Amino acid sequence: MNILIISGGTPPSRELLKKEVEKSDYIICADSGANCLYKNDICPDMLLGDFDSIKSETLEAFKKSNCKITTFPAEKDFTDSEMAIEEAINLGGDNLTFLGFTGTRIDHMLGNLGLLNKCLNKNVKAVMKDDNNEIYIYDKSFKIKGENKSIFSLQAYCDEVKNLTIQGGKYPLVNYNLKLGDSRTISNEFLNEEVSITFSSGKLLAILSKD
């Protein structure tokens, strides 16, 4: 089940939002993430949060719709985004897309990377997207696709990534141990449409970027 989750970071463009809405089976909004849906005349299936940042006109409009609304206290041990992901998984979502999960708040951004990791630990596919990036996390070898000369970057997530090999990139790598903060794997390029990435242990962030 494809579930789109929209949070309150930098809102996606209309084009990106429409594209992801069309691919989704269910839409969940976390608090002010609903504002961009309201602006684009899209009603979510579920709206949740403490509603400290959503516009009043947005909330009132969705209260009059068939949208399921769940309110949480402002003081809680989880973010609205985390609860939205929990709800998505409980609904049977096995392919999640996050929009509005990046922006000016670096603390939220780091926490949201942790939510990608949480999905990985539960064997749920997830990707964080904005108009310039797609972010994935892996704990086993994988392949990524992109246009020729488009950019991809890799970063170790928490653990050291051992025996990292990159095939099909402009800058190949063989059996390299990548540690957190190592910049060697930043701004690589696709030579063709597919890059193969293998490693024996650790967790790896893969970021497809464009300016």
Rank of each mutant, 00 (worst) to 15 (best):
F98P: 03
L37C: 09
D31K: 04
L116F: 11
I137A: 04
F72R: 05
D41K: 15
N66D: 15
C119Y: 11
D131L: 03
D94L: 06
F51Q: 10
C67L: 04
A30M: 06
R105W: 11
L96W: 09
D131F: 02
D31R: 10
D52R: 06
R105G: 12
A88S: 09
G146R: 01
Y38C: 03
Y138G: 02
K145H: 08
C67T: 14
F142V: 13
Y26S: 05
L47Q: 10
S32E: 05
E134L: 08
L96H: 09
L110V: 14
C36I: 15
K23F: 02
E75Y: 13
S56I: 14
D77L: 10
D130S: 14
K118T: 09
M128Q: 09
A61C: 10
K149D: 12
F152L: 14
C36Y: 08
D77H: 13
D50W: 01
L91D: 01
Q155R: 07
G92D: 05
T97I: 15
C158S: 11
D25P: 12
P73A: 08
N132Q: 10
A34H: 00
N121S: 13
D131A: 09
D77S: 12
S153Y: 10
I54T: 13
D41R: 14
C36G: 02
I85S: 01
C29D: 01
R105K: 14
T102N: 12
Q155Y: 12
F51P: 02
N117D: 15
S150I: 00
T79G: 11
G114K: 12
S150W: 01
F78I: 08
F101N: 03
I137T: 08
F72H: 12
C158Y: 13
G49W: 00
P44G: 05
I89S: 03
D159W: 04
E57G: 03
L154Q: 05
D159N: 13
H108Y: 10
F72C: 09
M109G: 04
N123A: 14
N148F: 06
F142Q: 04
E82V: 01
I151K: 00
F142N: 07
D94C: 13
E87W: 00
N112S: 04
L116G: 11
F101Y: 12
N117Y: 14
L91V: 02
N90R: 12
Y157N: 09
Y157W: 12
I106H: 11
I54F: 00
I89K: 05
A88T: 06
N117R: 12
I89Q: 03
S53G: 08
I28N: 01
E75S: 15
C29V: 04
K125G: 01
D130I: 08
D159H: 10
K149N: 13
Y157K: 01
K55M: 10
F101P: 05
F62L: 05
Y26C: 13
C29L: 02
K129D: 02
D94V: 05
D94A: 04
D41Y: 11
F62N: 03
K145W: 03
I89T: 06
L48C: 11
D94I: 06
I135E: 01
D139G: 09
K23S: 14
D159A: 08
D50K: 08
D94Y: 03
D31T: 08
Y38I: 07
K55C: 06
